[in-house]
Design a protein around this nucleic acid. Sequence first.
RNA 1: GCGCUUGUAGCUCAGUUGGAUAGAGCAACGGACUUCUAAUCCGUAGGUCGCGGGUUCGAAUCCUGCCAAGCGCGCCA
Length: 559
Amino acid sequence: MKKDIETVIKEMLVSSIGQISRERGISLEGGPPVEVERGRREGQGDWATNAAMQWAGAFGERPLEMARRIVSLLPENPLVERVEVAGPGFINFFLSRSWMSGTIEHILELAGDYGRSDSGGGRRVQVEFVSANPTGPLHVGHGRGAAVGDICARILSFTGWDVEREYYINDAGLQMELLGRSTQSRYFEICGRPGEVPFPEDGYKGGYIFDLARQLLDSEGERYLDIPPGESLPFFTRYANEVILEDIRKTLENFGVKFDVWFSEKSLYDGIKIPKMLETLKKNGFAFDADGATWFKATAFSDDKDRVLIRSNGVPTYFASDIAYHKNKYDRGFDMVIDVWGADHHGYIPRMKAAVQALGRKEEDLQILLIQFVNLHRGGQQVSMSTRSGEFVTLEEVIDEVGVNATRYFFAMRRSDSHLDFDLDLAKSASTDNPVFYVQYAHARIHSIFREAAARGVAMPKPSEVDLSLLVEPEETSLVKRLSAFPGEVEKAAADLAPHRIVFYAYDLAGDFHSFYNAHRVLGVGPELEGARLVLSEATRVVLANALSLLGISAPEKM
RNA sequence: GCGCUUGUAGCUCAGUUGGAUAGAGCAACGGACUUCUAAUCCGUAGGUCGCGGGUUCGAAUCCUGCCAAGCGCGCCA
């Protein structure tokens, strides 16, 4: 297909409206743009436009008259079967069989690249996500961020962006020390000398700290008992940090998420990055000294308070290192930076956006995606979790229980900024109700048809060898229309950073195929129709596989 | 107190750069397997789009005031 149908219809409209404007001597300058959208329901066409209503005013016409006039001047096009005026002045376009055939051929020609675009234009984008403190295993909330971040990265890459995935390791500061002291305390406890190193008040109480201490005891023996705790603390901190981070890395890889860069917060405190950042802010006029501290003039932008960068005791705040981190991101040449955060950090957005602007970037160069909380359900009951007490369900446990595919699907199935109820029983059930299986099953069913065809000695025909105009049943046309919508859905998902759109699309497409499958047979309906339906099935399989691949979910041939 | 987010069918949610009769799934009810996987399909029923005003030819969508839920308002990270 040379030009997508949306463009074709727009050009027809522009041609028609242009002719009217020449007749009337009215300029088109500054008028509303001509937009077309997919018909929403049966009888309202495959595509529709409200252009007549938009333009009626400029031409001093009533919308309905305007619509009729536009239609009468539309150029002929073989892809468009007929055009109707409806409602208050909508113009509905009904597409022809030759458009349907062209769509199927186009899909099979592009195969794995169908839906791919170059709208990103090769611009560089960084997606930073998960970035959990290496103080314990990932829990389900991190899992949702991991799934959403990774799928966004896949979608952006598919739409022509040059994507890098990054994990920011918060390995500096108080939390790490707390982790070290917690581990150290448990070590002494296990060695039969409890209380010698008191457990810190806000320490990490999870059982995994005991595991760490036990591993240490196995590999190092009791020799740290004889070293003053203050001296051995850095060892405990480093050990716990490394082991936990490695555990996180493995979990994520197991989940299908691979990072290009693991960025250490510690590396920001090299004595130069923060001063350089301050220099930049001062040069731009957004940093000042007051009350013995150094401040960021966040109120110059849309934040409601100025923020401290360097405390009066000379220690930089977390915010200062975060600005230095973001400056570093832009210095690395990214055109756009996406931060995936837990929704509880939303109050931090104004100051971060302000900082980015103070560094001389545009506000939209930083996109922040908020991930709302996840509620786990089992047996109709909510699973209670509390990070503080160490009672939480880890991502690893969920993956073990329901599998990678269902876990990714469930995490991505809702808009990321809305609360998510994750039903563990449903996610692992191999039943009607489980949407993951529903989608995968459609893919497997198609393969099943192909297996049966092969057994009967029927080969998959080339699209050019079959008469696709035989596909006239309503279930067939619905299916083709859905297939044709895929590239547009991908674009929208990329523009809105909205993975759930792909989930919904895949589900709807699977539904269209199941309906088709139940209403009609593919094999044994005569060689001509059989060939056409095999080709349609293959096109469906391709698009299902592409959608699932964007979600990082497998497309099984058999279930 | 201020701010951010959310509020759509009994439940879980789509749909919001303003468009035509507001859509799915689950749950409920009634149907469809001697034929390519019934992990499926078809049908019925289910709604003051939180409430009230406003803008518009047209509002779930935009503005405004309330109500409710969650979260955030440190020289913490």
